[in-house]
Simulated scan of single mutants.
Amino acid sequence: MVFSIRRWTSRVFFILIFSVLLLIVTGGYRWLADAVSPIHPYREPKGDALKVFVTDPDSPDSKHAADRLRWFYWYGE
């Protein structure tokens, strides 16, 4: 078996350069995604702002299948 040092060093050099460039590109992508992304919608409001949650109304107490089916299609519950 012939072991060529020149060939193996070129392979190792290629893998190192590829890894470094991959880390640079992924870091740049993370930075760009953080810079472009909108403000986090679930963060705590600042100042006098209040966060309001909408709750779904209670399900109908009716035992009729049509009412329960309408409720299911309307609210997805």
Rank of each mutant, 00 (worst) to 15 (best):
G76Y: 04
S59F: 07
R68G: 00
G28R: 01
P41V: 03
P57K: 05
D48S: 04
H64P: 02
T26C: 09
G47H: 04
L69V: 03
G28Y: 01
T55A: 13
A66L: 11
V52L: 14
S62M: 08
L16F: 12
R6K: 08
A49H: 02
R43T: 10
V20K: 00
I24G: 04
V25Q: 00
V2Q: 04
H40C: 03
D61I: 05
G27Q: 02
A49D: 03
V54Y: 12
L16E: 04
I24M: 15
I15A: 09
D48H: 05
R6H: 09
A49P: 01
A65K: 07
W74H: 12
L69T: 11
D61T: 05
R68M: 11
R30W: 11
R30P: 00
L50K: 06
L21W: 03
S10F: 14
I17F: 08
D61G: 14
F14H: 11
K63I: 13
A66G: 10
V54E: 12
P45W: 00
F72I: 03
D61R: 02
L32F: 07
R6A: 15
I17H: 02
W31Q: 05
V12D: 03
K51L: 11
L50E: 15
F14T: 08
V2K: 01
F18M: 14
H64L: 12
